[in-house]
Nucleic acid binder design. Structure first.
Lengths: 162, 162
DNA sequence: TATTGTTATACTCTATAACTATA
DNA sequence: TATAGTTATAGAGTATAACAATA
């Protein structure tokens, strides 16, 4: 790909925040595209399905549809659709919730867990490779500063909900 | 490929790069969703159309379809489609390129320029608001560190093109 | 009545590939 | 032959709204 990109149009006169945002957006798009390609070519899956499985990975008993929806920040209908696909692939299963007969929990099958582990290792490698130019202190700094922005945005949207 | 056994790898916890990536992705998604909502509600447009107009803003004579494609990092068919929409709204226009009768240049119409200015002001405000919690030196640091990663990724993908 | 999850639908964004008209 | 742009199509991702079952 060429080095001309979204940022090119910016010269002077734009606030620092805007330059920062465009850099953030460009970088995220670059990495995300890479990940999608890798996931499709090597595991015939998508980022959304991978993310759903990642949510389930450390919760052996599974998560409710509503939990998945909240954690993945997408609406319920989408979680149903993604779950249907993964059920068809026998990678996750829906189980009843005794306390609430409306709800269902979704959890990885043994096969799904195994499959996810293989994907996760590759995924980590791709990510490590992407950020490989940074030293640990730079990564820490980045993580912390991004955290400040993220937490403020989350606070704000929570306040707007009522 | 990786021959480290699955369990060993999983027990060591997630690398710093992965935590960093998830934070970057979440934050970008939060801001992007916000922007899309604002652009739809207040200007009845999309981020892709906004981006296309932003590319044209500082190039009064316009850009070729191929330039737009490269700068926006999307394939040509998409640029044609986005341009069609903006032409229908009378915000951009296609003009002939005398030196090459296959090519066309796309440029903002006077109306498009005026409309874009209004959007750009609001857009900047939303972005400034999003990053408002950071002080200038933090923004600088962020910008620089992100730049290192971005430029490395771009170099890498450029090398892969031939 | 409110909530959990499902179904149905529609739109945006994107890639791929076949096509045309020039070069 | 190669390039610029278009057309057609498909799939991912998402939101909205109406709905059924249960609380």
């Amino acid at each position: 790909m060429n080095t001309v990109d979204l940022e090119t149009r910016l010269r002077t006169g734009h606030p620092q925040e805007l330059r920062l945002w465009l850099r953030l957006l460009t970088l995220t798009q670059l990495i995300e595209r890479d990940l999608r390609t890798h996931l499709r070519e090597q595991f015939d899956t998508t980022l959304a399905r991978f993310d759903l499985m990642a949510q389930l990975e450390r919760v052996p008993e599974g998560l409710r549809m509503s939990d998945l929806s909240r954690r993945m920040m997408v609406t319920g209908g989408n979680v149903t659709s993604l779950t249907d696909q993964l059920v068809a692939e026998k990678l996750v299963e829906r189980v009843a919730v005794p306390e609430d007969r409306r709800a269902r929990r979704v959890r990885l099958t043994p096969e799904g867990r195994k499959h996810f582990s293989a994907m996760a290792i590759m995924h980590e490698d791709w990510i490590v490779e992407s950020f490989g130019i940074l030293d640990p202190s730079e990564m820490n700094t980045l993580h912390d500063i991004l955290g400040k922005v993220k937490h403020r945005l989350l606070e704000r949207s929570t306040l707007e909900i009522p």
